[in-house]
């Protein structure tokens, strides 16, 4: 696995500069049922395709940002700080 990511602050860097934060999950806003909590804490969608995910520029500015990547081809479609990311419902997956 080898590709590059563009940190919104620092620019394009090797993926090994970054820490992966996993796919974006939705934290429940109301008290969840035990099943909902279990799903939130332990289960991931693990899609083969376009995925919105967290990355941290560990060896750089240490900022967290969002990226959308194809998990099969490693193609990265965009990266953005959380406030600048396109709304999640526009994402096709």
């Amino acid at each position: 696995m080898s590709y590059v990511l563009t940190c919104p602050n620092c620019g394009t860097r090797e993926v090994t500069d970054f820490a992966f934060g996993g796919e974006v999950t939705e934290r429940p806003t109301e008290r969840p049922t035990p099943r909902e909590l279990n799903t939130y804490v332990y289960f991931r969608r693990n899609v083969a395709g376009r995925q919105r995910e967290w990355w941290c520029h560990r060896s750089g500015c240490r900022s967290w940002f969002l990226a959308e990547r194809d998990t099969r081809t490693q193609e990265v479609f965009w990266t953005a700080l959380p406030g600048d990311a396109p709304p999640a419902d526009e994402v096709t997956s």
């Binding site: 934060g21 967290w54 560990r58 240490r62």
Partner: peptide, 19 residues
């Protein structure tokens, strides 16, 4: 530090973290 800054990125609160 990563944990704190991650939640900060999620919550968007008026906080600065300095390691």
């Amino acid at each position: 530090e990563q944990w704190f800054s991650w939640w900060l990125a999620t919550w968007d609160m008026d906080v600065r973290l300095t390691d």
